[in-house]
Amino acid sequence: MQIVIALLSGALFGAGLLVSGMVDTARVQGFLDIFGAWDPTLAFVLGGAILPMALAWRIGANRRTSLSGAPLPGPAARHIDARLIGGALVFGAGWGLAGFCPGPALASLGFGGWPGLVFLAAMVAGMALLPVLDRGWRGRRAA
């Protein structure tokens, strides 16, 4: 059941990224390019995505468990710290530099050619590297 739901969700997510044009890095950078030829498409994508999800949160608020029986997430966490903002700033800078974020990087793997593959490999390396960097930072703070 969980696997079928995950397959359905991944399929819809991937198809949505393709249909919306968000697998096109030039379009994503066009949205971020407020001083150039600004492309508003990403705002429509985000707006469109928020609608069904806002409804889903409403439906979820009246339930304890999901269809597969797993509990639904609790209330949204409120603490905003340096880790959250620092991480988001580093992510945003990388996003602007290449026009890829994690979803589209995976969705375009099949047709993105070597540039998409190089980006994805570096992104996976970054994801693997963070726990290592974390241990280093914690070690230095303890010393």
């Binding site: 739901i5 969700s9 997510f13 919306s20 429509f44 069904p52 999800m53 889903a56």
Partner: peptide
């Protein structure tokens, strides 16, 4: 196309949340 694709992305996140109880974060 952006709006239509966006609705599909939101639906994907809704399926993941209400189906599996998880937040769909890539």
């Amino acid at each position: 196309r952006g709006l239509l694709g966006g609705l599909m992305i939101g639906l994907a996140a809704a399926v993941y949340l209400l189906g599996n109880g998880r937040i769909m974060g890539a």
